[in-house]
């Protein structure tokens, strides 16, 4: 269970990006976080695994407080939090298998990491996860030779290799074409239920959020202004989140394949 209480993040002296967020995610639910660019979605996700240092507040994962962890303890906590990135963040010049095994870096020792001598169980797990998402035959290909969708699958498998207790996905589909992004969303949805894993997804595409997730959280200017079922996410909620001024990326009409161009999702 992930529990966020009164989370505040402020960069320097400027206005806070997150102004006291509360969020509770239980079980294997898939939660999407929507909001305009700059609403604080990405900052919130990065506060959870402390890639961004929260200013104040509390974040608990299965009872462990994450906010004041340091050094080795922080790294041990991060092992339990998988993350999938908008830009995939793969190790481009390494093979797919090395990328996937890199998810185990928090577990193996430095000698094993350098010589790539991972335990047999890790390799088994890597192969079965890669087969699950259909990239096993690329194991010895360099990561930068893959297409966008395949690269994001590598990113997902790498995060799952950590045996995470929660999965964070920061705009996982924003760099992909509409069809591929549908596939990745479907994959995340089914993996969540197969592995009974809670998943938090930052997403611009409201239609996809409604189709593939069980709960939508809307952020605006660092505050949560919507938290509910996709069915309850109506025109008013959409206007409130995007301010009615900024054009949302997607209309509410159910058209998964419509106008989710990559170009409009440039910034996170």
């Amino acid at each position: 269970m992930l529990e966020i209480n009164n989370l505040v993040k402020r960069y320097g002296q400027s206005e806070a990006v997150l102004k006291g967020l509360d969020l509770k995610v239980e079980g294997n639910s898939v939660v999407s976080i929507v909001g305009a660019s700059g609403a604080g979605k990405s900052t919130m996700l990065r506060c959870i695994n402390r890639l961004v240092e929260p200013t104040s507040g509390s974040i608990k994962l299965n009872g462990t407080e994450l906010v004041n962890l340091k050094g080795a303890e922080l790294r041990r906590a991060r092992r339990k939090i998988g993350m999938v990135f908008q830009g995939f963040n793969l190790l481009d010049r390494l093979t797919v298998m090395e990328n996937v095994l890199a998810g185990r870096l928090g577990y193996v020792n430095l000698y094993q990491a350098i010589t790539r001598r991972y335990p047999q169980t890790d390799i088994e797990r890597a192969f079965s996860l890669m087969e699950r998402v259909g990239i096993a035959h690329y194991a010895n290909k360099r990561a930068d030779e893959l297409s966008g969708g395949e690269r994001q699958r590598v990113g997902v498998v790498r995060a799952l290799m950590q045996e995470p207790e929660v999965l964070l996905a920061d705009e996982p589909t924003a760099s992909l074409d509409p069809r591929t992004s549908e596939q990745i969303m479907m994959l995340l949805q089914s993996l969540a239920s197969e592995l009974s894993l809670p998943v938090l997804i930052n997403i611009h595409n409201v239609a996809q959020a409604k189709t593939y997730t069980e709960r939508i959280v809307g952020l605006r200017h660092g505050k949560m202004i919507f938290d509910g079922l996709p069915a309850d996410f109506n025109k008013e909620a959409l206007d409130a989140i995007y301010g009615g001024i900024e054009a949302p990326d997607e209309t509410v009409s159910e058209q998964p394949y419509s106008s989710a161009e990559v170009a409009r999702h440039d910034s996170a």
């Binding site: 939090i81 190790l91 890199a102 990491a113 990113g155």
Partner: peptide
């Protein structure tokens, strides 16, 4: 970005160097 990803997976500084910087 790869450095960020490795840090997020709980890798130590030395491992981040070996995997995300050296290549």
């Amino acid at each position: 970005k790869p450095v960020e990803a490795m840090e997020a997976s709980g890798a130590s500084k030395a491992k981040v160097i070996v995997y995300a910087i050296v290549p």
